[in-house]
């Protein structure tokens, strides 16, 4: 669509959303570290904080996409989400090697990768979009944080060690060899987290674009997409971590999803021209 979508009027400014999303996401990821403080051998009851980190990052990400795509980038909104997670997955996996510093390192690495990719897109490819570099930096950070959050949700930790450690149940039937195949990386559940985030980040803006775009409705939809992704990751985590800990994540994600889904229906009803059930096309003057 060549029509330039109007700039944000009113509402929460982008920088406020940026700061809130970044801080909330980092704090939630670090809260999963509480799992290591639990007595040895106890299940990772705090894994659900990883999912909340992903929700916070996706909430911020939907607004970044809106910020960038307002300029008409020449190709679809979804491709921006794919780029975000393509750079995010690389930064996030490298960062997991840095132990307890991983979330911070992920943010820094993603910012560096994003800055160079943004410079390349804007200057070498000559796109000349004012917010391009900042947006790609933000999206790479979001991609890394969402993936790290979902990985922490599925394993209870965010270090490389926990991502390659297999399920407690024997998948291959060989007990004395560590079962790397049944882990987040070995089973490539990272690919699922990749796609869950890649769609959830772009869907709120893609689904709400139009002349009557409203900020609160899009952000609620972003939370809804986030909780839905968290719910799916939580269901997958039953196969990897203790069932009790996984069920806590499932229940929290489900409650969050139900609440935001219902709220989104209310906001859509508020914004819609009419809310009809089994009614014909209204007569519009002139047609």
């Amino acid at each position: 669509m060549t029509v330039k979508i109007e700039v944000i009027q009113g509402g929460v400014p982008h920088n406020t959303i940026l700061v809130k999303g970044l801080v909330a996401s980092l704090v939630f990821i670090y809260l999963t570290y509480l799992n290591t403080l639990l007595p040895a051998g106890s299940p990772p009851y705090f894994a659900f904080f990883g999912g909340l980190a992903a929700v916070a990052a996706l909430w911020w990400g939907s607004h970044t996409i809106k910020h960038l795509c307002s300029y008409g980038i020449g190709t679809g909104v979804p491709s921006a989400g794919m780029m975000s997670f393509g750079s995010g997955v690389i930064a996030m996996l490298l960062a997991t090697q840095f132990g307890v510093g991983a979330p911070i390192v992920a943010v820094v690495l993603a910012a560096v990768i994003g800055a160079i990719l943004g410079f390349v897109a804007n200057n070498v490819l000559g796109m000349k979009i004012p917010v391009m570099i900042q947006s790609i930096i933000e999206m790479a950070i979001i991609g890394a944080l969402v993936l790290m959050g979902l990985a922490a949700l599925m394993t209870g930790g965010f270090t490389f060690q926990s991502l390659v450690t297999g399920a407690s149940l024997p998948l291959a039937g060989i007990l004395n060899v560590p079962n790397y195949m049944g882990s987040v990386i070995g089973g490539c559940l990272l690919a699922v987290a990749f796609m869950l985030g890649g769609i959830a980040i772009q869907h709120p803006f893609n689904a709400c674009l139009g002349p009557n775009w409203t900020q609160d409705r899009m952000l609620i939809l972003a939370l809804e997409c986030g909780f839905l992704s968290m719910l799916m990751a939580a269901i997958m985590s039953i196969g990897l971590i203790d069932t009790g800990a996984a069920l806590i994540s499932v229940i929290i994600a489900f409650l969050g999803w139900i609440y935001t889904y219902d709220l989104f229906f209310k906001l859509a009803k508020r914004d819609a021209a009419a809310w009809l059930d089994s009614k014909p096309i209204p007569e519009v003057e002139g047609h």
Binding site: T75, M83, F85, G86, S87, L93, L125, G186, C188
Partner: peptide, 21 residues
Amino acid sequence: SLAGIFAVGMFLINAVLAAYN
């Protein structure tokens, strides 16, 4: 798995950059 997911990620980055071009 690591090589596969990195290959997919780099593929998408290169394809999107080319699409921007």
